[in-house]
Deep mutational scan, measured.
Amino acid sequence: SEHYTFDGEEQAIRFMRDMEAKNLKYELQIHNGKYIIQVD
């Protein structure tokens, strides 16, 4: 699995939509205002 970190919500949402379009599962965590997305 890989981790991707985003500072902004818009970037994170765009990335998650992209993952959904590719049928990839992901998990979102928010730490200290950063959006951390783990992709299986």
Rank of each mutant, 00 (worst) to 15 (best):
S1D: 10
S1Q: 12
S1C: 15
S1E: 10
S1R: 13
S1L: 13
S1A: 11
E2I: 14
E2T: 14
E2Y: 14
E2V: 14
E2N: 13
E2W: 14
E2F: 14
E2D: 11
E2Q: 13
E2S: 13
E2G: 13
E2C: 15
H3E: 12
H3Y: 15
H3G: 07
H3P: 07
H3T: 15
H3C: 15
H3I: 15
H3R: 14
H3M: 14
H3N: 10
H3L: 14
H3W: 15
Y4K: 03
Y4N: 02
Y4C: 15
Y4Q: 02
Y4R: 04
Y4F: 11
Y4W: 10
Y4I: 07
Y4T: 03
T5M: 12
T5N: 04
T5A: 09
T5D: 05
T5V: 14
T5K: 04
T5S: 10
T5W: 12
T5L: 10
T5G: 03
F6P: 01
F6S: 00
F6C: 08
F6Q: 00
F6R: 00
F6V: 02
F6E: 01
F6T: 01
F6A: 01
D7V: 06
D7E: 10
D7Y: 10
D7M: 07
D7Q: 05
D7W: 09
D7G: 04
D7L: 08
D7K: 04
D7S: 08
G8I: 14
G8E: 15
G8V: 14
G8K: 13
G8N: 15
G8P: 00
G8L: 14
G8H: 14
G8M: 13
G8W: 12
G8S: 15
E9A: 10
E9Y: 14
E9S: 06
E9M: 12
E9N: 04
E9L: 15
E9I: 14
E9W: 15
E9R: 08
E9K: 10
E9T: 05
E9Q: 08
E9H: 09
E10R: 04
E10C: 14
E10S: 07
E10H: 04
E10L: 06
E10G: 05
E10F: 05
E10D: 10
E10K: 05
E10V: 06
Q11L: 09
Q11G: 07
Q11M: 10
Q11C: 13
Q11I: 06
Q11N: 08
Q11D: 15
Q11A: 13
A12W: 04
A12K: 02
A12N: 01
A12Q: 00
A12Y: 05
A12H: 01
A12M: 05
A12F: 06
A12E: 01
I13S: 07
I13D: 08
I13F: 09
I13K: 11
I13E: 10
I13G: 05
I13W: 06
I13Q: 11
I13P: 01
I13A: 08
R14G: 08
R14M: 10
R14I: 11
R14Q: 13
R14F: 04
R14D: 12
R14E: 14
R14C: 15
R14K: 12
R14A: 12
R14L: 09
R14W: 04
R14V: 07
R14S: 11
R14H: 08
F15A: 07
F15L: 05
F15H: 04
F15Q: 03
F15V: 06
F15S: 02
F15D: 02
M16I: 11
M16P: 01
M16G: 03
M16W: 02
M16D: 01
M16C: 09
R17C: 14
R17I: 09
R17W: 07
R17K: 13
R17T: 09
R17L: 11
R17D: 08
R17E: 12
R17A: 12
R17Q: 13
R17G: 06
D18R: 07
D18F: 11
D18Y: 12
D18W: 14
D18I: 11
D18Q: 10
D18K: 08
D18L: 14
D18C: 15
M19Q: 04
M19L: 15
M19K: 00
M19H: 03
M19Y: 03
M19I: 10
M19F: 04
M19V: 06
M19T: 03
M19R: 01
M19S: 02
E20V: 07
E20D: 13
E20L: 07
E20W: 05
E20A: 09
E20T: 06
E20M: 08
E20S: 06
E20F: 06
E20K: 06
A21M: 11
A21E: 11
A21N: 09
A21C: 07
A21F: 08
A21H: 08
A21R: 10
A21T: 08
K22M: 11
K22R: 11
K22V: 06
K22E: 06
K22L: 13
K22Y: 05
K22A: 09
K22T: 04
K22H: 10
K22D: 04
N23M: 07
N23W: 04
N23G: 15
N23H: 10
N23D: 08
N23L: 06
N23Y: 06
N23V: 02
N23P: 01
N23K: 09
N23A: 07
L24A: 06
L24E: 04
L24I: 15
L24K: 10
L24G: 04
L24R: 10
L24M: 11
K25T: 10
K25E: 07
K25Q: 09
K25H: 13
K25Y: 10
K25I: 08
K25D: 06
Y26F: 11
Y26K: 00
Y26P: 07
Y26M: 07
Y26I: 08
E27A: 09
E27N: 11
E27W: 12
E27S: 12
E27D: 09
E27P: 00
E27L: 11
E27K: 12
L28G: 01
L28Y: 08
L28A: 04
L28V: 12
L28K: 02
L28H: 02
L28D: 01
L28E: 01
Q29E: 10
Q29S: 11
Q29Y: 13
Q29I: 14
Q29R: 13
Q29W: 12
Q29F: 14
Q29V: 14
I30S: 03
I30Q: 05
I30C: 13
I30N: 03
I30E: 05
I30R: 04
I30L: 07
I30H: 05
H31Y: 10
H31P: 00
H31V: 15
H31L: 13
H31G: 04
H31D: 10
H31I: 15
H31E: 12
H31K: 13
H31F: 11
N32K: 08
N32H: 07
N32V: 03
N32M: 08
N32I: 03
N32C: 12
N32Q: 08
N32F: 05
N32L: 07
N32E: 11
G33N: 07
G33L: 03
G33Q: 04
G33Y: 02
G33E: 04
G33D: 05
G33W: 01
G33T: 02
G33V: 00
G33C: 02
G33F: 02
K34R: 09
K34Y: 09
K34E: 05
K34S: 06
K34G: 03
Y35G: 00
Y35L: 04
Y35F: 11
Y35C: 02
Y35S: 00
Y35D: 00
Y35V: 03
Y35M: 03
Y35W: 13
Y35A: 01
Y35T: 02
Y35N: 00
Y35P: 01
Y35Q: 01
I36N: 04
I36R: 04
I36A: 02
I36D: 04
I36G: 01
I36W: 06
I36Y: 12
I36E: 07
I36F: 10
I36M: 07
I36S: 05
I37T: 00
I37S: 00
I37L: 05
I37N: 00
I37C: 03
Q38C: 15
Q38T: 15
Q38A: 11
Q38R: 14
Q38H: 15
Q38F: 15
Q38W: 15
Q38P: 00
V39R: 02
V39Y: 04
V39N: 01
V39W: 05
V39K: 02
V39G: 02
V39D: 01
V39T: 05
V39L: 10
V39F: 06
D40E: 13
D40Q: 14
D40P: 12
D40M: 15
D40I: 15
D40G: 12
D40N: 12
D40A: 13
